[in-house]
Design a protein around this nucleic acid. Structure first.
Lengths: 82, 82
DNA sequence: ATTAATTGTAATATATAATTTACATATTAT
DNA sequence: ATAATATGTAAATTATATATTACAATTAAT
């Protein structure tokens, strides 16, 4: 049994940061274009960029691939209590 | 506009690989212990380990943190058409 | 200044992630 | 061999990711 001392406090969606918008604009793509590339709606892209929710890993991996940014550079945890 | 030539084919859940089970057993943790550490049910861990579904990024980040394995080593895309 | 393109957002609907309860099977310990 | 612990799985429910439609607000182009 390992890491018993580690307790992840209640992490909320606000603790998950991403640089989708930065990566997208660096690629000169619109939300619409990015959305089509990974087969989601424009709204989904917009909501992710504005941290309105918590995408699934498959979506994140597609974003990472299309935007050519590593998964970890695209999404990370930023919690004060760690 | 970039990467217009890249078209992600219909990626399904089976294309998402993970080594949660390996990382967990390397830490000598049971599914129950891991589940408690990140505040989900044992079933959720089991289903992820057996690729039954597609976790959210927040869950993946918590797993990465607790299991001490980078996000990319824990979850990756393995598609033949890339 | 007007028009077109881009983005934000809201309401409703749908798909699916995650929970709960429960039981069967497998694995480990005694 | 028996008991205890760990894992697989299934049905029903709940929470939430994502879609759809629609419109307002910005921003960029003419």
């Amino acid at each position: 049994m390992a890491n018993e001392d580690i307790v992840l406090e209640a992490i909320t969606e606000e603790d998950i940061k991403n640089r989708v918008k930065i990566a997208r604009t660096q690629k000169d793509m619109t939300q619409q274009e990015l959305a089509e590339a990974i087969d989601v709606t424009r709204q989904t892209i917009g909501l992710i960029e504005n941290q309105k929710y918590n995408p699934t890993i498959i979506l994140c991996l597609k974003l990472s691939y299309v935007l050519d940014v590593s998964l970890e550079k695209l999404f990370w945890l930023e919690v004060n209590n760690i």
